[in-house]
Computed example of a mutant assay.
Amino acid sequence: MTVFDIGSSGKSAETFFNTLKTSGVKKLIDIRLNNTSQLSGFTKKNDFKFFLKEIIDVEYEHILDFAPTKDILDDFKNKKINWQQYENKYIKLLDDRKIKEKYKDYNFNNCCFLCSEVKNTNCHRRLLKEYLFNSNDNKISL
């Protein structure tokens, strides 16, 4: 199984869509808490779904279950918690939401998790992949 991840910030629409197109992604799973952000204008909710389908024939799904809470995000942004504390809180949130059980039959093959961070190093999309798959085989970052 191949599962990708990508951040939308810092990329032009051309680079973003070409990267997805050449990777073989079949479905993009938006894991942002707020999918109406202006950080990358082409990634706004319904417009984004349209662009993905029309430009590169990729399905779109927004799964809020995979997003951190506003409190966790705000605490990290405001430096009330460090990255390790963020990781712990996010993993606990996934456990509390029973993510592994709820999505055990979901077909993630050739899916791509999207958030806004440029790199996945300090990003919940990396944590989500590690949480769901516990395998280096699924750590393909675009």
Rank of each mutant, 00 (worst) to 15 (best):
L73E: 15
Q84V: 05
K104V: 11
A67N: 06
N88T: 12
N138R: 12
Y131Q: 08
T69N: 09
N134K: 15
D71E: 15
N134P: 01
F16Q: 04
E130F: 03
Y106V: 07
F4G: 09
I72H: 00
L52A: 09
G41Q: 02
S9N: 10
D47L: 14
D47M: 08
Y131S: 03
D74N: 14
E130C: 05
N138A: 01
K98V: 09
R126F: 10
I29Y: 00
S40P: 09
V58H: 09
K70W: 07
D57F: 01
F42T: 07
L114S: 03
A67F: 08
V118M: 10
K100P: 09
N78E: 15
L142R: 01
S40R: 14
S8H: 06
I99Q: 07
N107C: 02
S116D: 14
L39C: 01
I56C: 11
L132W: 10
I55W: 09
E117I: 05
K119C: 03
N120Y: 09
E117F: 06
F76H: 15
Y106A: 03
N46M: 06
F76Q: 04
L142K: 05
L142W: 06
L28F: 06
D95T: 00
D5Y: 01
F17G: 07
L142T: 04
N34S: 12
C112E: 04
K27Q: 12
V3R: 04
S135H: 06
V25P: 07
